[in-house]
Write a protein that binds this DNA or RNA. Structure first.
Lengths: 341, 341
DNA sequence: CCGCCGTCATGAACCGTTTCAGCACGCTTG
DNA sequence: CAAGCGTGCTGAAACGGTTCATGACGGCGG
């Protein structure tokens, strides 16, 4: 209103108004105990009067330190990832750090752009769900001294810490469940194999089949989903409802995909509702509230993020080059969507 | 791997390796056409060899410019807000800007922390869903020259631009729909009145009642929800299922609340499934996929974010002090959850 | 051959902080 | 009274870039 949009006031303005040197103002800000009470009061008053806000760039340039952490997830719209982000944020807040969140959309270029942005800004660490298998860029970052933790991926190297969930085990549980229900033909709606969990969940599923002494190639059919959300899944699943070999059991690589499948069945073949077994993955909050409550493999999303942040903070604090790796175990939650054969 | 975690290389290192001055390196980076081809090649090669990444703090300190925008939403887990964030990001990406996203959890302190963080970092603009009615902090920011756009709130002043949805109209539509179905007693599960949309949606509901010539105080009962998510709603709604005056029509301030209500009915009073009319708000994607598909007031979430970002970019570019205000209209989407009286 | 001009590159000032050596001052101690 | 010490403050260097006035150099027209 009153103040015209003018230059931000600097520590120098404050010093002038308070009649002290800039060094003293800086001390008031950072080590108040070193400044005499009366001086401190005067400086604080000046700060208030000028509505002074320190310039983070200048501070960081000189001091080098920063309390911001960057995270890149595949898709911010997937509740699984927002829950992971929550876990990260909760841990960071406890250490007075802040999170800057970005979503790569599973797009290498977007990922690269954000990686660069974060590196240029000198974040004190990075938590990344990588888009593909090529960890080159991340290894480069790590080599340049940026602490990095892989999210939702096991790390193949000690150059990178990692926090993951055992996806093979998850696929195995889903497979055993469906086989136990009598299914001998299982469709897996899967994402690109460049995404490691997609591969692993399929591997787990096939392993379950093998353990029953069956032939995975005969039992499991894989169909790719263009994008890992409900819309993409619906598009990929629709043609399968037309033919004469309509699937009887579907294992979906995540819950959004499962929701897309359910939607498509309801739209195109309402007669089949309740006769196709569906198992999802993630156990997002609304899985239990769906038209057909979804059987799903639960992942400890919050813990995943929390722990990743913790590892990052520990590494940054110690500046120790020891990588930490943690693997959580998933847990099958059975609801009514997985019907017997 | 090979490189030990050493100091980031600087423009000076590049200059030395390429045998030029730092000014030339800077020119290669920012105005390549002013540098002779051969020199440019040599510098680029040096940059590659050193894996040089410019220091954003230094650049920003001197140049003042920045292409990062901050956004603060109430709850990152609410699909409505992630969709808004998507809209923002899509518009920003087109202008080569990047988004830094934060969630205030409807907590003034968290909001203040992020506001300060963003201001210290000198973001080129801010998009905020404010936690309360006190716009003081935001007006302060605006006065200090930070371009600010209110998200999902009409601005009471020209100091702040704004993009909003007409919540009174939304409440009105929901009310008319329920009244049209014959309901004469409507429960509204509402959030704190400090949140403007909560007030406005209630106002709209009451207005619908008045238009029918009925007494809002007799027809509408308001029950507060502690937190605006499914869990909070379930907790608030549970006791209402115990008494003898079980509600027959519920208007929920958002879809997550509606999901909580549905969940609680299913758990505690499955006999009442299908006999309590429920209307939600936002029309999030899974509203249509729920056990009882949800009637909801749709908001143009993506457009909201997109437009807000657009206004911000325009203001920052022109540095014009003219505030822009835009109000979108909501639209009722009827599904099966809103049963007749 | 001289003067002029355009092309490229240089070097230093500057952005707003933090940090640190050093100074002023007053008090204690021997 | 000299020496020593602790307290509280100052002033300047440094961080890593951008920007701009300046200058070197070669070519060209007269």
């Amino acid at each position: 209103m009153s103040t015209p949009a003018t230059r931000r006031s600097s520590i120098g303005d404050v010093a002038r108004l308070a009649g002290v040197s800039v060094g003293t103002v800086s001390n008031v800000l950072n080590r108040p105990d070193r400044v005499a009470e009366s001086t401190r009061e005067r400086v604080l008053e000046a700060i208030r009067r000028l509505a002074f806000v320190p310039n983070a760039s200048a501070r960081q340039l000189r001091a080098g330190t920063i309390t911001t952490v960057g995270a890149i997830v595949l898709d911010i719209r997937n509740p699984f990832f927002t829950e992971v982000a929550r876990g990260i944020e909760d841990r960071l807040a406890a250490a007075d750090h802040t999170l800057m969140l970005a979503s790569s959309d599973d797009d290498r270029e977007r990922e690269a752009r954000y990686l660069r942005l974060f590196e240029e800004h000198g974040v004190s660490g990075l938590l990344v769900v990588p888009t593909g298998d090529d960890l080159g860029p991340l290894l480069g970052l790590a080599a340049r001294g940026v602490h990095t933790v892989l999210l939702d991926r096991p790390s193949p190297t000690d150059a990178l810490s990692s926090v993951a969930v055992d996806d093979v085990a998850g696929g195995l549980q889903a497979g055993e469940h469906l086989l136990g229900l009598g299914h001998r033909s299982i469709l897996m709606l899967n994402g690109p194999h460049a995404i490691r969990p997609c591969r692993d969940r399929l591997t787990g599923l096939r392993r379950a089949v093998e353990r029953r002494g069956l032939d995975p190639d005969a039992v499991v059919r894989e169909v790719p989903v263009p994008t890992l959300d409900a819309g993409g899944a619906a598009a990929a699943f629709a043609p399968l409802l037309e033919g004469d070999r309509v699937p009887t059991a579907v294992f979906c690589v995540n819950d959004l995909v499962a929701i897309g499948v359910q939607r498509e069945i309801r739209r195109r073949r309402p007669d089949l509702i309740g006769s196709i077994a569906i198992v999802g993955y993630d156990d997002i909050e609304i899985a239990a509230e769906l038209a057909t409550p979804l059987t799903s493999v639960r992942q400890p999303a919050h813990a995943l993020g929390y722990r990743a942040a913790e590892i990052l903070l520990a590494r940054a604090a110690a500046d120790a080059p020891v990588a930490e790796h943690q693997v959580f175990q998933p847990e099958l939650v059975v609801r009514s969507s997985s019907v017997p054969a």
